[in-house]
């Protein structure tokens, strides 16, 4: 499919997704399941990656800024801003595109090839709305919490380096992570993460929804979902950053 046709099909699907649910009770039931599946179950990987990256970033920054001209708080400040501006939103979303994106694409793709989506349509259910809307809304709702967790846990990772090694002192690190803090950065990072959450869930759902064939094709749809949502995240990261930070 050409990129224009694919984009058109995506927006037509979204048109079917973003309508009022047939039954709000059923929507909220699905929504709460997705909050757990896409959000809470992503927490362990977010915590593990963030704590290690926070620690490693602190070590790397300290080792590469060993210069008496630079103030001692530099390491903490660089770690904080890197986590806040890029890692916890963009990089974490790229990782979640792999985990959540492939999960959504393979789940919906399997439902497509086993005719479960046709069965929903035959019952008279708007399958796109029933299956996809709870996933997108739940993931968008959970994303700010995942980002905030990632930032906090990343900073804790850096703190551990100060606490358990002699690479950096705890006091220098704590001064650094509080120095010249710009609250707008928090708004910026959460704003773009909401955008990325929508991209991950909707692009993955799109590839799953239009999967056809067998298990191999579901695998292919899953791969396409991860690759394309990653590319879109990087593109929109550039766009949003140039609009919001310039």
């Amino acid at each position: 499919m050409g990129i224009i046709k694919e984009t058109g099909t995506y927006f037509l699907l979204m048109q079917r997704v973003f309508v009022l649910p047939d039954k709000w009770r059923i929507f909220f039931r699905q929504f709460s399941k997705e909050l757990e599946k896409l959000g809470l179950l992503s927490l362990p990987i977010v915590i593990i990656i963030s704590v290690f990256i926070g620690a490693i970033m602190t070590m790397q920054t300290k080792l590469n800024t060993e210069n008496p001209i630079l103030p001692t708080y530099t390491t903490g400040l660089v770690t904080r801003d890197t986590l806040l501006l890029e890692f916890s939103s963009t990089i974490m979303c790229l990782i979640l595109a792999g985990k959540v994106g492939s999960n959504i694409a393979s789940e919906i793709g399997t439902m497509r090839i086993t005719e479960q989506i046709d069965a929903l349509e035959i019952i008279g259910v708007n399958a796109a709305n029933y299956l996809i809307l709870p996933k997108i809304t739940a993931f968008v709702v959970m994303m700010p919490f995942l980002v905030i967790y990632s930032i906090v846990v990343g900073l804790v990772g850096g703190y551990c380096i100060g606490l358990f090694t002699d690479i950096i002192s705890v006091s220098d690190y704590l001064v650094g992570i509080q120095y010249a803090f710009i609250p707008y950065y928090v708004f910026y990072t959460i704003f773009k993460s909401l955008f990325f959450a929508h991209i991950i869930a909707s692009v993955a759902a799109y590839y799953g929804y239009y999967a056809y064939g067998g298990a191999l094709d579901v695998g292919r749809a899953s791969t396409s979902a991860v690759v394309n949502s990653s590319i879109l995240i990087l593109f929109f990261n550039l766009l949003i950053t140039s609009l919001m930070l310039n």
Binding site: T114, Q116, I122, I123
Partner: peptide, 19 residues
């Protein structure tokens, strides 16, 4: 069409139960 489908039942080849 959606209203009409409420008058329709279908048995799929692979049953297509919601797993």
């Amino acid at each position: 069409v959606r209203l009409l489908r409420r008058e329709v039942g279908m048995l799929f080849q692979g049953a297509a139960l919601f797993d």
